[in-house]
Computed example of a mutant assay.
Amino acid sequence: MKASAVLELLKPITWFPPMWAFVCGAITSGTSFQDHWLTIILGLLLTGPLVCASSQAVNDWFDRHVDAINEPNRPIPSGRIPGKWGIYLGIIWSLLSLSLGAFLGVWGFLATLLAILFSWAYSMPPIRLKQNGWWGNLACSMSYEGLAWITGAALLSVTLSPSKPSLLLALLFSLSAHGIMTLNDFKAIEGDKKMGIRSLPVQLGPKNAALVACLIMLIPQLVVIGYLLSLDMFTYAVVFLLLLIGQVLMMFYFYQKPIERALFYSGFGVPIFVSGMMVAAFGIRQFGVAQ
């Protein structure tokens, strides 16, 4: 078993969203990054290379039969991760995640525990939340965005708990990310149908699923704009709105051919989405400073 196959199984490209959400949550705490540099490094290690990576290994193991149809060259179905090493790596990485989470205190451990439970419940029978796109995507979005955001906000907060504005943004961006998770399902429609996985494109058809995904992405972000305005964070609300307009333009393009353009939206629309997360985080930070 080569190290390159293990790294491919852990999918470093997927580590970015939770690491970014962690930083956004940390920004809302209002504390100095310079004074908490070690906590930030450990938090980034926890949310990306450990928790997210463990979820990828677990998912690939329980999805090995689906991947044999959709993506036979992936490490497990191709045999580059032999025997039961896929599940072993998922277990090892989950335990490492819990260990570091415990080292970071109560909030770190609880958030890590919930994220690990979500990742196993998402993939593992008989729960296998992935069987239904509504619940499966919600579990992923809560783990990738909400729990990572809350962890960053809690670990750097002087009160050892996230502020209410920060918690609200964590919830709203988690809900919006539900639609982003649906983007990954368009490439796997054939295999999902054969294996009985009821993703939103399978349940609703590609066009309807694309419309639902766009609405789910859009509505919580409109609420974010309203909330920033209610806090008198006008400049941040305007910048966020401009970024959202960019997303909407790409949504129209994606909706016309969702199967062919889901990857395009992931590559260009999602970076705009996460940029909006950062803008909103700084807005909440500024609101806290002004109080």
Score class of each variant (00 low, 15 high):
1 M>W: 13
2 K>W: 09
9 L>F: 11
10 L>V: 14
10 L>C: 10
14 T>Y: 05
14 T>S: 15
16 F>I: 14
18 P>K: 06
18 P>H: 02
19 M>R: 05
20 W>M: 12
22 F>L: 02
29 S>M: 00
29 S>A: 15
29 S>G: 05
30 G>Y: 01
31 T>Y: 04
32 S>I: 08
34 Q>Y: 12
37 W>G: 03
40 I>A: 04
41 I>G: 14
42 L>Q: 13
43 G>L: 02
44 L>Q: 02
45 L>V: 11
48 G>C: 04
49 P>G: 06
54 S>I: 02
57 A>V: 08
62 F>L: 07
64 R>H: 08
65 H>E: 15
66 V>K: 05
70 N>C: 07
72 P>F: 00
72 P>Q: 05
74 R>S: 06
77 P>I: 11
89 L>M: 13
99 S>M: 12
99 S>E: 03
100 L>V: 10
100 L>E: 08
104 L>R: 06
108 G>T: 07
110 L>N: 01
114 L>M: 13
114 L>A: 14
115 A>H: 00
129 L>Y: 10
138 L>N: 07
138 L>M: 13
138 L>G: 07
143 S>Q: 13
146 G>V: 06
146 G>K: 02
146 G>A: 14
146 G>M: 14
151 T>D: 01
157 S>F: 01
158 V>H: 07
164 K>E: 06
164 K>N: 04
164 K>I: 15
168 L>F: 04
170 A>D: 11
170 A>N: 11
170 A>Q: 10
181 M>L: 14
181 M>H: 07
184 N>C: 09
185 D>N: 15
188 A>V: 07
188 A>E: 14
193 K>Q: 15
195 M>R: 13
196 G>Y: 05
197 I>K: 06
199 S>R: 10
199 S>T: 15
202 V>K: 04
203 Q>F: 12
205 G>H: 11
205 G>E: 08
206 P>K: 08
207 K>A: 13
208 N>L: 15
209 A>E: 07
218 L>S: 12
221 Q>Y: 01
222 L>T: 00
222 L>Y: 00
223 V>E: 03
224 V>I: 11
227 Y>W: 12
228 L>Y: 02
230 S>H: 13
230 S>K: 12
232 D>I: 00
236 Y>L: 03
244 L>A: 01
247 Q>K: 14
248 V>K: 03
253 Y>C: 00
256 Q>Y: 08
258 P>M: 06
258 P>H: 05
259 I>D: 06
261 R>P: 04
262 A>C: 14
264 F>R: 06
264 F>L: 15
265 Y>M: 02
267 G>M: 11
267 G>L: 12
267 G>C: 03
269 G>V: 08
270 V>M: 13
275 S>K: 01
277 M>A: 08
277 M>Y: 00
278 M>T: 10
278 M>W: 03
280 A>I: 09
282 F>E: 12
282 F>N: 09
288 G>P: 00
